[in-house]
Amino acid sequence: MRPLAKKVFSLIRAVSLLLFGGLLGAPTLATEQGPVDPKLRQLLQEAVSDNHSFNDRFHAEVWLVDMSRRLESRMPDTRKRLDLLKQIHVEAKRAGLWPELVLAVIEVESNFDRFAISSAGAMGLMQIMPFWLDEIGQPGDNLFDIRTNLRMGCTILKYYLDKENGNLTPALARYNGSYGSHRYTTKIYTALDNRWRRY
């Protein structure tokens, strides 16, 4: 077997183990602190208690293999990479977002560093402000926990997307706390086009 074919075969096998072997158990700013919108608080409360997983395993396997190759240079550990990608896919779909968009947001926000902390105090992959834990606080919540961070980040981004009637540019700017500026959204679109978009 050729080296490339062997590598792809190993990756597909790892994805299959992740999907069928049950390896998974059970925001820059994401929003500026200030008066908390009651609707957003309610959406986050519902989100943190929701359990969801892949429904279409074939689609999931194809997507995971493709995205795993794209993420490999940033995250060489195959198991960790696939675990993260599965969680991103699940949380993006649960919120009604494209998983590729969430990957672009994570790239720009934290460069896939789950322990990233911004100068403003935003934490984790999607850079969630810690005041959200006070607002919706469930015991044991931790913004460095991948699932918690992704669930909150995806819920917040979808909230802003709905608020902007599906217009992604101002929704991303609201997510980042840079409404009125195109600098952040340009970074997201560049990451999406250069690395994550599927044609």
Rank of each mutant, 00 (worst) to 15 (best):
F54G: 04
N55E: 15
D56H: 11
R57Q: 13
F58V: 12
F58H: 14
H59W: 12
H59D: 11
A60E: 09
E61Y: 10
V62N: 09
W63G: 00
W63Q: 02
L64F: 02
V65T: 14
D66T: 13
M67S: 10
M67W: 00
S68C: 04
R69I: 12
R70P: 03
S73A: 15
R74T: 12
M75V: 07
M75I: 09
D77W: 07
D77K: 09
T78C: 09
T78H: 05
R79Q: 13
R79N: 12
K80A: 11
K80H: 15
L82M: 11
L82S: 06
L82A: 07
L84G: 06
L85F: 04
L85P: 08
L85A: 04
Q87C: 10
Q87D: 14
Q87T: 15
I88D: 01
I88C: 02
I88Q: 04
E91N: 13
A92K: 00
K93V: 15
K93I: 14
K93F: 06
G96T: 09
L97C: 07
L97G: 08
W98S: 15
W98D: 15
P99E: 02
E100S: 02
E100C: 00
V102M: 03
L103Y: 01
A104F: 00
A104C: 01
V105D: 03
V105C: 07
I106K: 03
I106L: 07
I106A: 02
I106R: 03
V108L: 08
V108D: 00
E109I: 09
E109F: 06
S110M: 04
N111W: 04
F112V: 06
F112K: 01
D113N: 13
D113I: 02
R114G: 05
F115L: 14
F115Q: 14
F115R: 15
A116G: 12
A116C: 08
I117A: 13
I117D: 13
I117S: 15
S118K: 08
M123G: 06
M126I: 09
Q127P: 06
M129K: 10
M129F: 09
P130Q: 11
W132N: 01
W132R: 01
W132C: 00
E135T: 14
I136T: 11
Q138D: 11
Q138R: 15
P139W: 07
G140L: 11
L143P: 04
F144V: 12
D145Q: 12
I146L: 06
T148G: 10
N149I: 04
N149W: 02
N149Y: 03
L150A: 08
L150C: 10
R151Q: 11
R151M: 08
M152K: 11
C154A: 13
T155S: 09
I156S: 01
L157R: 03
Y160D: 07
L161M: 08
L161V: 05
K163Y: 15
E164W: 08
E164P: 08
N165T: 13
N165K: 15
G166P: 04
G166A: 03
T169F: 11
T169K: 10
T169H: 09
A171N: 02
L172V: 04
L172C: 03
A173H: 00
R174E: 03
G177R: 03
S178R: 10
S178T: 14
Y179M: 10
S181I: 01
S181W: 05
S181T: 05
R183P: 02
R183Q: 12
R183W: 08
Y184N: 01
Y184E: 02
Y184T: 00
T185H: 07
T185K: 03
T186M: 07
Y189F: 14
D193I: 10
N194A: 08
